[in-house]
């Protein structure tokens, strides 16, 4: 029983906020300093080669692969005691997984958190970029499931690495062309491939293509972590990011005929909420913090007094 009795690890008791700012026997922000240094070296390389996927020795985290282990490792490696962290999933601060990841960092690093986009120094996200423009000095950390934009066209990593090396992206252009020939449109609505700094074809992670234009010339640093696939990539501030398209079929984003039912915004990405079994639905901002800020400023949508209730606890 020695192994169990002698360890500080395990168990769910004892939140952070001790001298080390960590949790029980764990280091600040969970990862040991050696691992953080290894990850920061990968990040530096990624920043130096915008859009290039840097292999790194991804650690096994106490959350499952697919839950954001890449983003969590990136955040854990760059976060300091003075940082203010915002975590969103599907644009919302209070989706269960965003709550869980925020709690993980509060517990292991004792850092301050916020829901306000403008107040955060680090924003970890899954599937969205906040509506509000990000600021210089902020860092946006994306959780990435499949970092390879060519993966669905070529399953082999040995092949796709060659294609990147040669900047041979013909198969992607052919795929987009075939979409247009078959459907009249490019049939990709999220994780829409981008070209970073005119060189690497890059997966923006499964954000809706609505968010792609925000990546271009963004004042904030964008870091991408793929834990299971063991890759990190980056887009430095004010880098050119182009969504692939053709002269006669320019890139376009999703639009809705509806506005946000709560805040009345007509320029945000909307979630559809099904109201009954007769096809009635309402549309609300996916970015909950942005929607709340607008309502606080007096904006109202057609159903603006509907009070969000709750996930059945």
């Amino acid at each position: 029983m020695n192994a169990i009795e002698n360890t500080n690890h395990g168990g769910n008791g004892g939140h952070g906020g001790n001298g080390a700012g960590g949790h029980g026997g764990y280091n600040f922000a969970y990862l040991d300093e050696q691992s953080k240094r290894m990850i920061r070296r990968a990040i530096l390389k990624a920043v130096a080669i915008p859009g290039y996927q840097v292999p790194f020795g991804s650690r096994e985290m106490p959350l499952p692969y697919g839950w954001g282990t890449g983003g969590i490792q990136v955040t854990a490696s760059i976060i300091g005691r003075d940082d203010v962290l915002k975590v969103i999933d599907q644009g919302a601060d209070d989706t269960t997984n965003a709550v869980s990841i925020r709690k993980f960092f509060v517990r292991t690093a004792g850092i301050a958190t916020t829901e306000e986009t403008g107040q955060a120094t680090i924003i970890q996200t899954r599937h969205r970029i906040p509506e509000q423009s990000l600021l210089p000095g902020q860092i946006l950390v994306y959780q990435v499931p499949i970092p390879e934009p060519l993966r669905w066209l070529e399953a082999r990593e040995t092949e796709t690495r060659k294609m990147h090396g040669l900047a041979d992206y013909g198969i992607m252009h052919v795929k987009l062309y075939e979409d247009i020939a078959k459907y009249g449109h490019i049939e990709t609505s999220y994780d829409y491939p981008v070209r970073v700094n005119g060189r690497y074809l890059t997966a923006p992670s499964p954000i809706p293509k609505f968010d792609n234009p925000k990546m271009n010339d963004m004042p904030a640093l964008q870091l991408f972590g793929a834990g299971r696939e063991k890759r990190i990539y980056a887009i430095p501030p004010h880098t050119r990011v182009e969504s692939l398209d053709f002269d006669d079929h320019p890139f376009e984003v999703q639009t809705w005929s509806e506005v946000c039912a709560l805040c009345g915004a007509d320029d945000t990405y909307l979630d559809e909420v099904i109201m009954d079994d007769r096809g009635t639905s309402m549309f609300v901002c996916s970015d909950t913090a942005h929607c709340a800020e607008r309502r606080a400023a007096g904006h109202r949508g057609p159903d603006g007094d509907a009070a969000p209730t709750g996930l059945v606890p």
Binding site: A92, D94, T95, T96, A98, V99, S100, K103, A261, V273, M275, M282, V284, T288, D303, A306, A307, P308, T309, G310, L311, V312, P313
Partner: peptide, 14 residues
């Protein structure tokens, strides 16, 4: 009527 995802933290604890 509108069931958003508020209360996620309590749901997780439960």
């Amino acid at each position: 009527m509108y069931v958003a995802v508020k209360g996620g933290e309590k749901a997780i604890d439960n």
